[in-house]
Amino acid sequence: MRRSLGLWLYLLFSVVLIWISHHNLINAYLQLVVMFIGINIILSSSLNIINGYMGEFSCGHAGFMAVGAYVTSILNVWLFTSDRVFGPPLLSPSAALYLFPVTLLAGGVAAALAGLLVAIPSFRTRGDYLAIITLAVNYIVKSSVENIQAIGGARGFMGMRKVVNSMRDVADLPWVMIWILVFTGLTVWIIHRFVNSTYGKGIVAIRDDEIAAEIMGVDTRNMKMIAFMLSSGLAGMAGGLFAHILGYINPGTFTIMKSTEVMVMVYLGGMGSLSGSVLSAVLFTVLLELLRPLQVIKWVVVPLLLIVLMLFRPEGLLGNRELTDVFPRLRKWFSSSEKVS
């Protein structure tokens, strides 16, 4: 019971959140912010696998997000709505409710395959050179989407609203919010289990000393592939969810700016700290919203805060530690490493 306390608390939190959103006890704007927080948690914690735990420098996370966003959206629009390009729905629109996780997963798988574009070069290069490759992949994805007119090119792609509406027709609940809560929880759970197993710690060994890792029995190629695919796959699912919040996506959303934003969250929270990534995704999203009245000046203030942070706390808020290390009392309830003994 104690071991799964975190899970129960999260479930309770989710149910309360869904209930108050359903009864419109918080306004649509706040609901939107909550949903973006969820997306940002998925993005930052999944990037932390690469930049934090594995010690590589990926700066093209938005590219994988785009792959997931487009694949999921196209699948949903094609399968569940009558669309100008794709014609009448292939399946009953009400099936969207049950099949949404499937299409989302398909988007994740597509993004994971795109992750191979980075994973395979990473066998031979690392550090700065690999960073350039991730940057290139980001551009490749964005430019490809821009040039495929069938899915709207640079104008963007829409129609996901209808998918969400047909889910609401089946049962009147804030479905996007529900899916985001489910997949945010799932992401954190997956990453937690991955990095706390001896198997997953192989990537930390790669960060600390790749040569020693390879010679002392870690199949570094396999682990790099797993790490990159896991990270980009989760980013893809974040993209798929993101696309359904506003019901509209365009390639301009998934530029290097977006990737940078995710990177900032990772470094703000601390490299190799899962709770740090979650915390910083919440703080960063809320901060951006709070500073909205400043308008353009916001983009001066936020980077300035970042400079201050890097000067006085370069390891980020938690930096390689978890919340349970900072507040050992928490460990009584949340075991950070479920040790098998």
Binding site: G202, V204, M216
Partner: peptide
């Protein structure tokens, strides 16, 4: 623990 990685015998 990690140097036993190659014979863990379990996957993701």
């Amino acid at each position: 623990c990690i140097s036993q990685h190659f014979r863990l015998g379990y996957g993701l």
